[in-house]
Design a protein around this nucleic acid. Structure first.
Lengths: 107, 107
DNA sequence: TTTACGCATGGTCATTTAGTCAAATAAACA
DNA sequence: TGTTTATTTGACTAAATGACCATGCGTAAA
């Protein structure tokens, strides 16, 4: 693996890592139907606003979302919408994992 | 967010998290063209075999890969192949990030 | 021009992660 | 049987992560 390949794989892994946290994944999914301000995203999460804000910063740095300040509020939206197209496959993995458990029980 | 939704989002995030490490993502991509033993996967990675083995355990626990022992060797393969179908979108994010940098330079 | 609001940032702490080395296990071979 | 090979596991350490609280900062309303 040369330097270029290494840099590419690190960049890709970083995006997946950004989505690999329940709070961040949940917020990304929330943004599927349009932009939301931090206060809206914070409504359904049991965590300090500062925590939410830091998670949003991570998503932003990974390039998953972009932000825009309007008045007192900051609005976030998905930068590349296809980011959520993956979820059916993720759910397929969950299904497969479940099946494995069932198979193990049968033995 | 109720308990059920919470559990689901955690399970999904866990899969993304498993792929969110350069070494693990690289190995998963390697497995796209068929199963490989640990020694084959270790060939191109500059890390202790025990480290590789631990990363494979994480991928296995997330349900991304399955393993099978044959003789002295343990072979790993992708459990749900669609897991790599996401990469074009991830690369699209990288492109978009790059474009953002270029735009910033222009200002 | 105070006051209140919405959000980001810095400090701190507990937990998790990723790595290494040494040792254990299990299969194949001499 | 004893040895080598392939892989996993345990002990340990350094670094990263995620959470909270307190504080700062810009904007809008009073």
């Amino acid at each position: 693996m040369n330097e270029k390949e290494k840099a590419l794989i690190e960049a890709k892994a970083n995006i997946l890592k950004a989505l690999g946290h329940p709070t961040r994944l949940w917020m990304a999914e929330r943004l599927a139907d349009g932009e939301k301000c931090v206060c809206e995203l914070a409504e359904n999460i049991d965590a300090d606003v500062s925590t939410i804000s830091k998670h949003l910063t991570i998503l932003k740095q990974a390039g998953v979302v972009i932000d825009e300040k309007r008045g007192k509020q900051v609005y976030y939206r998905l930068k590349v919408p296809c980011i959520l197209k993956y979820m059916p496959c993720i759910e397929e993995v969950l299904q497969a994992n479940l099946q494995t458990h069932i198979d193990l029980m049968k033995e």
